[in-house]
């Protein structure tokens, strides 16, 4: 039986990682390449860089499993890809302006960003991550979906509206509500914005 012609379940693929079977990468590629490349493209907006991010993601997955045994492999890979792609984004940004969907979505969050380059401590980042996670977790499904699509996956507003079956202006309205809620929460937690 040729493995490459069959789409395996996440559990089966993770099992291949644990057995250090290189088919794990091949199966991951068959199942998730298109999706992962779309995230990379959203962030770095470059085909070559996207492919490199993809390879780095597979390397990251290979190095993390085992210890990790993700249940939903897609989520696990998305986290790795986002980290890899954002690193690449900032490297490229120092050399040239990048017009990616990620950059556009960042511009929507300028209310949260100060020009002052204060010291970024890991503790503060983890704390901030917790606050944002708790906030997003509390959102209704639709708003949660929009937040993750726009600010994590960096999908375009058009794609999000198509997936949700609503208009772009509805998505924009929801984003406005999400941002207002987050702004209020962060201010109440003492963050200077």
């Amino acid at each position: 039986m040729k493995l490459q012609n069959i789409i395996m379940s996440d559990g089966e693929i993770v099992e291949l990682y644990w057995r250090r079977d290189e088919q794990a990468i091949k199966q991951t590629d068959i199942k998730y390449k298109k999706f992962l490349l779309s995230i990379a493209n959203n962030i770095v907006c470059d085909a070559w860089d996207g492919e490199e991010c993809l390879n780095d993601t597979y390397m990251g997955a290979w190095n993390s499993i085992p210890e990790a045994r993700p249940v939903i492999l897609k989520s696990f890979l998305t986290v790795i890809m986002r980290r890899v792609a954002i690193n690449r984004f900032y490297v490229n940004k120092s050399q040239k302006r990048i017009v990616s969907e990620f950059a556009v979505s960042l511009s929507e969050l300028e209310d949260f960003i100060a020009d002052k380059d204060d010291t970024q401590s890991e503790m503060e980042t983890k704390e901030l991550a917790k606050i944002i996670s708790n906030y997003v977790r509390s959102l209704p499904d639709k708003q949660m979906y929009i937040f993750v699509s726009r600010y994590y996956i960096s999908d375009s507003l058009g794609k999000i509206s198509e997936e949700l079956g609503c208009s772009v202006s509805t998505v924009k309205r929801e984003i406005k509500k999400i941002k207002q809620g987050l702004l209020k929460l962060l201010e109440s937690e003492g963050y200077k914005l």
Binding site: S75, R82, A114, R137, M144
Partner: peptide, 26 residues
Amino acid sequence: MTEKKLVSAITELDGDILDRYFVMKQ
């Protein structure tokens, strides 16, 4: 906060939120 801090914080979003997102996507 800086842009990088915000971006990092979002990247550190808890795994259960992503799981919920992908289930909804499906």
